[in-house]
């Protein structure tokens, strides 16, 4: 379980997070919804130690992360894998080498075992036919899936997804969504997804949180959040339709 308490982040004069609280429950998929630039990725990066908050506490499996020493922090986040917004594959390496990268770098296994593991995880995310390709030759969806295989090859306990379907066509989005769902079911990972894509809520979420004005304003179960009378539904999910209607064009 990961718990974020009273998290404050400021960039220059701009306050991005203003005392954010969030609970990521064990074994569940939590989707954080919010408009672009509201601080969703910042929250994730704080948990991973990539951004240092001004104030707050982050508990990973009950242990305070921010106050821990550097070595302990590394150990705590070694249980977390992340899919970055555009995959962040290394351009100079093939898909195979990208997926094998963390295992090779940390010299965890011999080449034969690394090869076996790469093929296994590539198959789970359905990227096995592209292992010899370079990232520049992949479509957006394939890139995300390759990055997903790289994120799970170290068998993390938690998986973070930063806008996993942004910029993808509906078919590619669906394939990425299916890969994420498959990982959740097969590997039993606890997932945190930050997005503004409502489809992800329908397909993946068990818990839904709404980030607005630097705070988690509401957190509800998926069914509750998707109910037309709920706060999340009226404040975010239905906002597009509402604005369209108000504009007078629809």
């Amino acid at each position: 379980m990961i718990e974020v308490r009273d998290l404050w982040v400021k960039f220059g004069e701009k306050e991005v997070l203003k005392g954010l609280n969030l609970l990521i429950e064990e074994g569940k998929t939590t989707v954080v919804l919010g408009r672009s630039g509201i601080g969703k990725s910042v929250t994730m990066k704080c948990i991973l130690g990539l951004i240092k908050p001004q104030r707050g506490q982050i508990y990973i499996d009950g242990e305070e992360f921010l106050g821990a020493g550097k070595a302990r922090q590394k150990e705590l986040i070694s249980h977390i894998g992340m899919l970055m917004q555009n995959g962040a594959l290394f351009d100079s390496l093939t898909v195979f080498d990208n997926i094998a990268f963390p295992l090779r770098y940390h010299r965890k296994y011999d080449e034969k075992e690394i090869g076996r593991r790469v093929h296994h995880y590539a198959e789970i995310v359905q990227i096995q036919d592209a292992l010899d390709m370079m990232p520049k030759d992949l479509s957006g969806g394939m890139k995300r899936k390759a990055a997903l295989a790289r994120a799970i090859i170290q068998e993390p306990q938690y998986l973070f997804y930063d806008e996993p379907t942004t910029g993808l066509d509906p078919t590619s989005s669906a394939l990425v969504e299916i890969a994420i769902r498959k990982l959740k079911d097969e590997l039993k990972v606890t997932s945190l997804v930050v997005t503004h894509d409502i489809e992800l809520v329908y397909f993946l979420a068990e818990e839904v949180a709404l980030l607005e004005d630097g705070l988690i304003l509401y957190k509800e179960s998926r069914d509750k959040a998707l109910h037309p009378g709920s706060e999340i539904y009226s404040n975010f999910i239905a906002s597009r339709e509402k604005l369209h209607r108000e504009s007078g064009y629809v």
Partner: peptide
């Protein structure tokens, strides 16, 4: 460009 495309963040997450 590695920095801009978050490849450096990805390295850190992989404990590199």
């Amino acid at each position: 460009s590695m920095q801009m495309s978050e490849q450096i963040s990805a390295l850190k997450i992989m404990d590199v």
